[in-house]
Design a protein around this nucleic acid. Structure first.
Lengths: 125, 125, 125, 125
DNA sequence: GTGGTCTAGACCACC
DNA sequence: GTGGTCTAGACCACG
């Protein structure tokens, strides 16, 4: 798989796995019904404690991104792609709102903020 | 003083104190040379262990926001206001950049982003 | 490990640990990526309260000498050796400058100073 | 008097007074038998707690730099000039030795050290 | 009165 | 097992 795990990240390892897998599902790299690597396999591949992988997968099941197939393993749940994209959008909106709110609190007016945003946007296009 | 501490915030208590005091300094509510409440006094007022307050104050000294006056207490350091405002701006810029980057990653184009930002901005004016 | 702690040193215990660990890193006795003794282990070994060790380690993280690996422990940060050596050199230079300045203030001329230095240097070769 | 007291210095205020008065005696600015300002007078002048001045004077009496004259006040002790100069020299020698020792510990050889010292010396001549 | 340090013991999330 | 945080209570030097 396509995981980049950094133990120095500050973020918990299981959380890095959760996020990256959700991103893969959101972007369509993983499709509904597709089987994902077993706990042991991914643990070996990433040189990470299996408990940590298991915890990530458990979290993903709670979030309805994965579902277990008896005797077979875990697969991407139906409708997971749509759901992950929505979650992602919602998260972005929330964070954007937070940043803007804090900016307002710092006495930045709409004009300053728009300039700031434009400047950052221009770096990405 | 004007501290609102929520022990269930996720954020460490000492960190909440650090941030709120920095904000007070940035906004000019606390000016350079001004004495802040003593460790014991604030501990009493907030019903928090003095060690926790002390830890926050120690952190603020390392960040050059406070300086100690032997046997007298802690005062706001010279130039702290300017420094806190700069730190705040830098933080906002960084976070804005992160959110926009993640939005880009989610296949949102500049137009969508601008709309999103405008919508959020209009809620604040 | 190789710590010599003297509680009556005048120097705070946590500071003695910080300095000695930095010296170990500067001298190459501890290399980047190497895991250092856990808080509890070192506390047991030195018969010192774990909180005191933790405080030293926290300080060393702020100084970018150590970095934490979630659930595993603390390791020497990348580039810490170089950084510690530089810090050490800078410290020596600063202190040398102070001593010489004070000597000058005491009406010692360059010749006297050079003699003094030579005499001390000869004791070390 | 000619005291420069900085409460942000890190050094205890009483210690700053002790050092500066000793320096004045060593340099001949204050001569044996000369009366120094009373505790109250100096306290007023420096806007400092009289207890702090008293503590400094007590320390200076213990170091045989000052002696009390019944009913009159404190005067500079006989032979204090010579004694202060000696103490100063001894202190400088000790500190120089410490710095050089630490430099040696950092693997600097005699040649490097001489260069360092020369460089610093040239800034003073 | 002030801050600074240390000890002792507890709870948490993470691996 | 690991570090991170918090509480409680003590002692010190300083003003």
């Amino acid at each position: 798989m396509f995981f980049h795990i950094d133990p120095h990240n500050g973020l918990a390892i299981y959380d890095q796995i959760v996020r990256q897998l959700k991103f893969a599902v959101a972007s369509g790299a993983l499709k509904s019904g597709e089987l994902i690597p077993s706990v042991r396999e991914l643990a070996r591949e990433l040189a990470i404690n299996p408990n940590t992988i298991a915890r990530a997968y458990r979290q993903l099941q709670e979030d309805d991104v994965l579902q277990s197939v008896r005797g077979t393993g875990l697969e991407v749940a139906t409708g997971a792609g749509e759901r992950c994209r929505n979650e992602r959008l919602k998260l972005i909106r929330t964070r954007l709102r937070q940043v803007l709110a804090e900016a307002k609190q710092s006495k930045l007016n709409s004009k300053d903020l728009r300039e700031l945003v434009e400047k950052e946007l221009s770096n990405f296009d």
